[in-house]
């Protein structure tokens, strides 16, 4: 790890100012992703602003009948919350399908949204990666791309977003609250948080430098069954090859793109009375593989069909 200075933030506004004023500063919350990347010298901030103890961990009812989850709430505490389990089971399920208990006990909701890709070439500092080093090239295009994106990728980057939690948040139509450099809090959606790689895959989110996620907001749960399904190489503690979250008529896919992928085409097909199979095929019609990840198109299609059928009360 390269040297850095450390400060513990006393309030959100001063933390935002500290990071906004210093292009080499980063927020530190749970640290489970950032510190790992710093050990590997993929991330090398010179200053860390620890926001982990800011009073932003509460889970509260909102006026519209939803929930507001503070960004510093740990993944474990969100999944354990009785209101989340009763009203948003897909969110609890998604969280407990990610990482290990030790990681979930430290990782925060805000940090989970901001975690980086697990693409092997992003991690391998001896190989070109446009995310790490803009313009260097993408080694995954013709390399070990078994878990690469099948939707929304570009010729510059085919990395996927690894989050389980954010797939459920996207299906639930969740929002994000973020504090900007001026101290104002603005609202965006989880679905719009991540930016398409295009020719700037190193720019990953719509947040500006120093902007801090302060909360995630859940609208009232949609009517209908909620299901989270994850396909992976081992039964526990492994990143997903494909994930599907269904909340009533709302569907999101994980592990397939640079962001949790709201499956609007599948939703429209279902709303028009089409079968789960037709809905899944409509969504995956635009899918493109890079070779070793070709199987993910069929896998994601089948997992989506199974998840929709399960949510509708049928057999999975």
């Amino acid at each position: 790890m390269r040297p850095f200075t450390y400060e513990r933030a006393t309030d959100a506004a001063s933390a935002v100012k500290a990071v906004s004023d210093n292009p080499n500063a980063r927020f530190l919350a749970g640290g489970t992703n950032l510190l790992d990347l710093m050990k590997l010298e993929i991330e090398h901030p010179t200053h860390l602003v620890d926001v982990g103890r800011l009073p932003l961990a509460a889970i509260e009812e909102t006026a519209d009948g939803g929930l507001r989850i503070g960004a510093m709430a740990t993944n474990s505490l969100v999944a354990a919350d009785p209101r989340v389990r009763a009203r948003y089971p897909v969110l609890a399920q998604a969280i407990i399908h990610g990482g290990s208990p030790q990681l979930r006990n430290k990782a925060t909701v805000g940090g989970n949204l901001m975690q980086r890709t697990r693409c092997a070439y992003f991690y391998d500092t001896t190989k070109p990666c446009n995310k790490r080093q803009p313009g260097a090239g993408c080694s995954a295009l013709e390399g070990l791309n078994r878990n690469a994106a099948i939707l929304g990728a570009s010729e510059h980057c085919i990395a996927t977003n690894p989050s389980d939690m954010s797939v459920a948040l996207t299906a639930l139509g969740a929002g994000v609250e973020a504090m900007t450099a001026t101290g104002a809090v603005r609202a965006l959606t989880v679905a719009d948080l991540h930016l398409a790689p295009g020719d700037t895959p190193h720019i990953e989110t719509a947040l500006s430098a120093g902007e801090l996620i302060t909360a995630v907001t859940l609208p009232p749960a949609p009517t209908g069954g909620q299901v989270y399904r994850k396909a992976r190489d081992r039964a526990s503690y492994a990143g997903g090859l494909a994930m599907v979250a269904v909340a009533g008529g709302q569907i999101a896919l994980g592990g397939v793109a640079y962001k949790p992928w709201r499956a609007l085409k599948a939703e429209a097909a279902l709303a028009a009375g089409q079968t789960p199979a037709a809905a899944a095929e409509a969504e995956l019609a635009d899918a493109r593989d890079s070779g070793r990840n070709a199987f993910k198109i069929a896998l994601t299609t089948r997992l989506t069909v199974a998840a929709i059928a399960q949510a509708q009360g049928g057999k999975s």
Partner: peptide, 11 residues
């Protein structure tokens, strides 16, 4: 329980 390797002591 947490992984002590993924946490800074100063945290």
């Amino acid at each position: 329980r947490i992984n002590s390797c993924l946490s800074l002591a100063v945290m």
